Computed example of a mutant assay.
Amino acid sequence: MSVNDKVLKLAFLGEWDTLLPVLRNYPHLINLPSEPKGYTPLHQAAWHGATLPVIGELLFLGADRSITTHSRRQTAYDIVIEKHKRPDLEYILFPKKVTIAQIIRKVVLTEPQIFEVYDGNLILVDKLIAAFGVELRPDKLEELENRLHHLFFALTGQTINAEKMIKFDAAQGFSFDVNPAFFGQTFFPLICRTAQAEHNLVESEWATVSDLFEPSPTQWGLRGDLFLWLEMRQSLCQVSLPKDTDELADIISAAFQALTGKSLISRVGDNDFFVERFSRGGMSSGYVSSLYWLNEFIPQLQARLNWLQTAGL
Rank of each mutant, 00 (worst) to 15 (best):
L124W: 02
L19Y: 04
F153H: 08
D64M: 00
R72T: 07
S175F: 06
N306K: 12
L201I: 11
K37G: 04
Q102C: 00
F115S: 04
Q196E: 14
D5N: 14
L228N: 02
G56V: 03
V108M: 09
T110M: 14
A311G: 05
K9R: 13
A254G: 09
L58C: 05
D225C: 02
V117I: 10
S204P: 01
S71G: 07
T260S: 10
L20C: 10
E142G: 14
F213A: 02
M1G: 13
T208L: 04
A255C: 07
D5R: 11
L264N: 01
G286W: 02
L226D: 01
R193P: 00
L52H: 12
E142I: 08
D119T: 07
D250I: 08
A254V: 13
L313S: 08
T310Q: 14
L259T: 05
E57C: 12
V80D: 00
G62R: 11
V54E: 00
T310K: 14
G312I: 09
E214V: 15
G120F: 03
S34P: 03
S285W: 01
L8F: 05
S284C: 09
P33L: 04
T51M: 08
F94A: 06
W307G: 04
W16H: 04
A131L: 02
F297S: 01
W307L: 10
N306V: 11
I129V: 15
H28I: 06
Y26S: 12
L248D: 00
I252C: 03
T310Y: 04
D64K: 01
T40H: 06
F174T: 11
F297I: 15
I81W: 02
V275T: 13
E143R: 13
V22N: 05
P242E: 10
C192E: 12
P87H: 13
D246T: 14
N200D: 12
S175Y: 04
L259S: 04
D5M: 06
N295T: 11
L151T: 10
W307R: 06
L23T: 08
F273M: 05
E35I: 12
S175R: 13
G133H: 03
I298Y: 02
A131G: 04
T260D: 06
T68C: 14
E116H: 09
F176H: 10
S2P: 15
P33V: 03
K243R: 10
Q234E: 05
F273A: 06
D169V: 14
L141P: 00
I252L: 15
T156S: 09
L89V: 06
C237A: 11
E205F: 08
Q44M: 11
D88M: 09
P87F: 10
